[in-house]
Design a protein around this nucleic acid. Structure first.
Length: 739
DNA sequence: TAGTTTTAAGTTTTT
DNA sequence: CTTAAAACTA
């Protein structure tokens, strides 16, 4: 009892310390929400280095998200600077790292590109003829699940994923084509390393020599393939330690297998188990609310969380009449607490089940002057213009990339139609698969020939910018006297800029912006900015593409607002905590969805549990009587989960009669319903005559408000009607006097 | 072949 | 409401 521990072990409780000091047999740490598991892992890393004299390079810690990996690295470094050299990665990023070095053993070129789900669907769409895209999507989804369960196209168990006769055939053809192209999908990043480790014992031995300690965080979210990878990485001497919470398993739909955690003691024989059941994050009634719902699940280990914080205010359940009232309620709660200086903006988080639900909050918060940050929904790298630019880059690395080729070869239009493209692809497949080579020699119509030559030159020129020596001699050739909108800075951004400008994509998207009022050009610029952090070489480009593919959440600088309310899906909150949390949309059909039952319903309950246990001090739950989906408002029933909450720890408020408090419109808000004011901001009013450099003369028909500011609608004299974001595009206009 | 207009369909969660 | 496919025009 009087044992003296080093200072960094002092803050730990007995259970936590036991987990840190454990050695020898495999260890399963069952860590409830808020029980300090990250602290345990990071402290353990530090302790292994400091007290056990372990080389940091021999430690591998695997997490589920890049964000978690970064945070873990940061915190471990704070305790022990040497921890910097430990390998902290996600499963997928580890798989990519492995394959860049050892993939050739599986016939893989080290310069492979990683296909995301969209790319996989496109690939399959080319393989399966005469099926609607929705069906192809479903098959692609099943292929992805099959890979999660480590099932190849010849596995007899495949029928458990998809029993249709054709599925096996499509899966096999998909694999064949992917191999020809030389790229990999997400599933391959896990499966292929396992196959290599099994087929080449000397490689396995090398890895066993290197990694003496392997730790896995969020083990409840690991899939079967990931379990196999872990198993292969563990040699006879390897110390393995996994951390997880079966109640927080929320990725079943993506192949996560709770069985992994339940069966860990059998699969890793003689494993010890440590339970962390002291919760330091939330007050007792918040924990009780969360537990009372998840208690209704049958398939769980079961645990009791102790709230070390003790009592606090009761969570509030608020019934509201519709989602506008819900939005107002949230805004009001937040504004009041910030005005009273009880909280900062960033102490608040609003949780919702689907990304689409963020929109209402965004528009209203913008008006009310509430600073906010949307986590995750950006999907920056899934946008059209970004994928276009990435496709050009992918072709520099892998000229066999059919998906990338099809995407950009005729964008903007170069008179290369479907017939020509198919011809090129077929010829390439018949030879070595190189599309650019095939394109050079193939016979095409004169128009298509000319267009293709242009395209090939763009790609060829792009390669020059991957060599530092060439960059100074050929930067920024102005095209047709017009200044390029994208400006190269440094590093890889020069290459990206040149490619996008020379291919005509810049101009193409610029014109699209003018018509639709988008900001695709801004997004391209953002991509260029990110690229500047990478080296202008093949290696730099491969790193860039891999980081983008594996870390979609890559912080974009425009989103760096410090003190802001967090808008986030339930799924994305895992691992986070906030002083005050509002869980919104607790209606049957939204959360949980109506079609959820059995195991899937249990997963939704766990999602509720994850959301509720993010709250430190105060928890609010809202439920609306009516909700607009994408048509009209529909009556909604309260969520099943609301009936499951232990009522002794809940205050219920019914405001369906009408929540009328007017939101404070102060801060930087401008008044929106005031037409004159709106016209002032826009700089145009109804009836103004304008001239546009492409569309000719026209008249302003109306001015509308949008999240981005006023939008000016113009009917041109040629009969066309379109709208413009006045702020960004006013330079295209010339006012020619009132009517 | 490219661009425009009309019609239909689909919306969960993500490395 | 947004996006994709189909139909139509030039």
């Amino acid at each position: 009892m009087s044992e003296v521990f080093p200072a960094y072990l002092e803050p730990l409780n007995d259970e936590q310390r036991r987990a840190v000091l454990h050695t020898g047999k495999p260890l399963l740490i069952l860590a409830g929400a808020g029980s300090g598991k990250t602290r345990v892992i990071t402290t353990k890393i530090a302790w292994l280095i400091r007290e056990q004299g372990l080389d940091p390079r021999s430690i591998l810690a695997v997490t589920f998200t890049n964000k978690a990996a970064r945070e873990m690295a940061e915190r471990a470094k704070q305790i022990e600077p040497l921890a910097e050299d430990a390998m902290l990665r996600t499963f997928h990023s580890f798989g990519a790292w492995f394959l860049r070095r050892n993939g050739s053993l599986a016939g893989l070129n080290p310069n492979f590109i990683i296909y995301d789900d969209d790319d996989a669907i496109s690939l399959l769409y080319g393989i399966i003829e005469d099926k609607p895209r929705a069906e192809v999507k479903h098959i692609a989804y099943n292929i992805s699940r099959a890979k999660d369960y480590f099932l190849t196209s010849c596995d007899p168990l495949l029928a458990q994923i998809d029993s249709k006769g054709d599925f096996r055939k499509y899966y096999a053809r998909y694999e064949e084509r992917l191999t020809q192209i030389g790229n990999v999908d997400f599933g391959d990043l896990i499966i292929k390393p396992v196959e290599i480790l099994r087929a080449y014992p000397e490689v396995a031995r090398r890895f066993h020599d290197r990694f003496k300690v392997i730790m896995v965080d969020e083990y409840q979210d690991a899939n079967v393939a990931q379990f196999h990878l872990l198993k292969e990485l563990c040699g006879p001497e390897t110390y393995v330690c996994v951390v997880g919470d079966d109640d927080q398993s929320i990725y079943r739909f993506r192949g996560a297998e709770v069985k992994n955690i339940l069966e860990f003691p059998e699969k890793f024989s003689g494993a010890d188990i440590v339970r962390l059941e002291s919760n330091y994050r939330s007050t007792s009634p918040i924990l009780q609310t969360a537990s009372s719902v998840v208690d209704n699940n049958k398939g769980r280990l079961g645990k009791t969380l102790r709230a070390e914080k003790g009592n606090g205010s009761l969570p509030a359940l608020i019934y509201l009449s519709n989602q506008d009232e819900e939005t107002k309620f949230c805004a009001d709660k937040i504004l009041n607490s910030v005005k009273k200086k009880e909280t900062n903006w960033s102490d608040w988080a609003i949780l919702y089940r689907t990304n689409a639900q963020s929109l209402g909050f965004e528009t209203f918060f913008l008006r009310s002057g509430i600073p906010y940050r949307v986590v995750g929904s950006l999907k920056f790298y899934e946008r059209e213009e970004i994928k276009d630019a990435l496709a050009l880059l992918a072709l520099l690395v892998n000229p066999r990339d059919e998906i990338a080729f099809r995407r950009v070869v005729n964008k903007p239009a170069r008179a290369i139609g479907a017939v020509s493209i198919d011809k090129i692809v077929d010829t390439a497949i018949y030879n070595d698969g190189n599309l650019l080579e095939a394109g050079k020699n193939i016979e095409l119509s004169a128009k298509a020939r000319k267009g293709l030559d242009e395209f090939l030159k763009v790609i060829d020129d792009g390669k020059k910018y991957l060599d530092e020596k060439n960059i100074h001699s050929c930067t920024n050739t102005p095209t047709r006297g017009k200044k390029d909108i994208l400006t190269a800075r440094e590093g890889l951004s020069v290459c990206v800029t040149q490619l996008v400008n020379n291919s005509g994509l810049t101009k193409y998207h610029q014109e699209q912006d003018e018509v639709a009022g988008n900001s695709k050009l801004d997004n391209l610029n953002e991509l260029v900015n990110t690229a500047s952090r990478y080296k202008p070489s093949i290696e730099g480009l491969i790193d860039f593409l891999e980081d983008i593919e594996l870390d979609r959440s890559m912080e974009d600088s425009s989103n760096e607002q410090q003190d802001a309310v967090t808008l986030i899906t339930f799924h994305n909150t895992k691992g986070l905590e906030f002083k005050r949390v509002i869980m919104t949309g607790l209606e049957q059909g939204i959360f949980p969805r109506d079609d959820k039952k059995g195991d899937e319903l249990e997963e939704e309950r766990r999602l509720f549990y994850v959301g509720a246990t993010r709250a430190m001090d105060e928890l609010y739950i809202t439920s609306c009587k009516k909700r607009r989906m994408y048509r009209e408002s529909e009556l909604a029933k309260p969520s099943l989960f609301l009936s499951e909450i232990d009522k002794s720890c809940l205050q219920i408020m019914d405001q369906t009669a009408g929540y009328t408090r007017t939101p404070v419109r102060s801060y930087n808000a401008f008044k929106l319903n005031d037409d004159n004011k709106l016209e002032d901001i826009a700089g145009y009013k109804r009836g103004d005559r304008v001239s546009h450099e492409y569309h000719g003369h026209g008249g302003v028909v109306k001015i509308k408000d949008s999240a981005e500011g006023p939008v000016v609608y113009v009917r041109f004299d040629n009969g066309k009607e379109t709208f413009f974001n006045s702020e960004k595009l006013s330079h295209k206009f010339e006012k020619i006097g009132d009517d």
